[in-house]
Design a protein around this nucleic acid. Structure first.
Lengths: 148, 148
DNA sequence: TTACTTGCAAATGATTTGCTCTAAA
DNA sequence: TTTAGAGCAAATCATTTGCAAGTAA
């Protein structure tokens, strides 16, 4: 199943860098992969805590940093509202609600040809991009006025 | 000249909201408009300080927040490296260096048709987007290894 | 056994806020 | 004058880091 593949992937990629597969690392990735939301480090911390009651927030931050380096999770910076983490490793774009901060994944073709275009016109190398949409989600369009 | 237009714009827009046109507000906008870089609040603070030695960092932050509300400057969040401010009020995309953090404006057609497409498929309203590129700038491609 | 990791707490860095005095209108 | 705004410093918030104890390999 998907979860096993993740754990295997994780073990291999950690070993490649001389890092160990520990319980917190495995559980953090599993929990994040099991979500279709995009939690902050703190939100994820509380979720993981249900399985590992002694986990610390520092470990969550450290682990997320490693998982990002390994390409297993993506960070996304939803304007001002802090960093959120995405367990979906396929590249895709996001749509965030300006009012409540909720983030959803979008199904949109990737604009990868732009990277080469930008590299050519700027002289920058290894160009990638991030495309983020924001608007007001259906719920917030109704509840306009009341707090998030 | 352009600077006068900005000051006029500023006065009008502030008055519309019952806000006053003060020396710090005028100077902060002038300095930012006069740059083709994208300074952090602190960098801008030091620049403004050359003209207004008693200015405080808090005032710079407060003023930038107001100018953003007024649509006179844009905030941009270059992943992790903090918020930068852009005095160029025309919508455009950015390219940042992963290593030194430098940001340049790009001359690329706007992808505004995507907003409607995303709104239609998601039910979100007033959809806008932000497209940011990153890569390694020419200088950092050479100096690879040494600190930024 | 031998590092790498963790949990904890303290440190950091960016941004915000409270308060008193100053200065637009 | 009157009241919004500035300057200053303390507070806040997210994230990082140092260190002693725990645990993969």
């Amino acid at each position: 199943m998907a979860m096993d593949i993740s754990a295997e992937e994780l073990a291999v990629r950690l070993q490649d860098r001389g890092l160990r597969l520990t319980r917190p690392r495995r559980v953090i990735l599993e929990v994040l992969r099991g979500l279709d939301t995009h939690p902050t480090a703190e939100e994820l911390y509380f979720l993981v805590k249900q399985r590992l009651p002694h986990i610390s927030l520092g470990t969550v931050y450290r682990t997320l940093g490693i998982l990002e380096d390994l390409g297993l999770v993506q960070e996304l910076t939803v304007e001002k509202r802090g960093t959120r983490y995405n367990g979906n490793p396929q590249p895709h774009y996001h749509l965030a609600c300006r009012r409540c901060g909720r983030v959803v994944d979008l199904d949109l073709p990737l604009l990868n040809e732009l990277n080469a275009q930008v590299a050519a016109q700027s002289g920058f190398a290894e160009v990638t991009h991030r495309l983020e949409f924001c608007g007001y989600c259906p719920a917030c369009q109704r509840e306009n006025g009341s707090p998030p």
